[in-house]
Write a protein that binds this DNA or RNA. Structure first.
Length: 290
DNA sequence: ATAGGGTTAG
């Protein structure tokens, strides 16, 4: 191409990244910077998302430098993407520094920061931020609530869980699959498998993850039989189980001492469902038989 | 043909 626009450059950089050719990805990016004039506001965020998805902090930092050199750091959209990149690369302090320096933060920026803390294992701080966000008069949407619910699940705090559920009810969010599934997980990890089941029963369009979360919940609450029943129900509904389902199921069997059932599952997972046993499945089997 | 954030094991 004699004429390349920002899209052609981005597609090429992203394409190399997806193909796993980081050298070419890197080289092409540098060439982009050398050859193009001022990049538009979409090119650098796009490349930052590539860095985030590949957890390539090295290239992410390089792009950050380019953002600074073009004076784009005051752009809210660009900056939020940087926060997300650093957070997902587990450099939460750097993410927080950028976040704190932003004069105006929109809902997505808050959500990215809250989620960053959850993923980094600091659920307490994620809930603190959630309160600060509301003090800032921002109204969370469903995606924000998914991250908050996740934070609460990690904390295992039932008091908080009830507050958050109450809040979701007051702003009248209908539960979509993802938020509903997150809430099942939250209640289960906060200790109430029954409340989790109530949410589960209220979700009309369950996907494989919804079933998986509920099955796992019965598993770590020692109710292996119920986990198995649910698995049968899931099969009846025509949902195809994946490898994670079988991790939860085998775990459930080992914690309830259901040796025969566990062996049976281990046999059919490959023969009937084409799921190849991995180290986690085998660990559960060792637990079950040992 | 780029267009910011979200769900299961570990």
């Amino acid at each position: 191409m004699r004429e390349r626009d920002p899209v052609s450059w981005s597609v090429m950089v992203g394409g190399f990244a997806k193909a796993g050719d980081l050298d070419s990805c890197f080289t092409t990016f540098r060439e982009l910077i050398r050859c193009s004039s001022q990049p538009d506001n979409y090119t650098l965020p796009f490349i930052l998302r590539v860095c985030r998805d590949m957890m390539n902090l090295l290239m992410g930092s390089l792009v950050h430098g380019v953002v600074l050199s073009y004076g784009l750091c005051s752009d809210q959209f660009v900056c939020a993407t940087l926060v997300d990149m650093y957070a997902k690369c587990r450099v939460i302090e750097d993410a927080r520094k950028l976040f704190d320096d932003m004069p105006k933060k929109d809902l997505i920026t808050w959500t990215v920061m809250i989620d960053g803390y959850v993923e980094c294992g600091n659920a307490t701080e994620s809930l603190v931020l959630f309160d600060q966000m509301r003090d800032d008069d921002l109204v969370p949407d469903k995606i924000t609530m998914v991250t908050v619910v996740n934070g609460c699940a990690k904390l295992g705090a039932m008091q908080k869980a009830r507050l958050i559920y109450g809040y979701i009810c007051t702003i009248k969010f209908s539960l979509n699959v993802i938020l509903g599934t997150a809430m099942i997980d939250m209640y289960a990890k906060c200790g109430s498998v029954d409340l989790a089941r109530e949410i589960f029963d209220g979700i009309r369009e369950k996907n494989v993850i919804t079933w998986s979360v509920m099955i796992a919940a019965y598993g770590y609450h020692g109710q292996g039989k119920k986990a198995l029943d649910l698995f049968l129900m899931m099969s009846t509904c025509g949902i195809m189980p994946n490898g994670i389902n079988f991790v939860s199921l085998l775990y459930a069997c080992s914690h309830a001492g259901l040796v025969d059932e566990g062996l049976e599952l281990f046999n059919i997972m490959w023969d009937k469902y084409g799921v190849r046993p991995d180290v986690k499945h085998c660990t559960c089997m060792v637990d079950l038989l040992g």
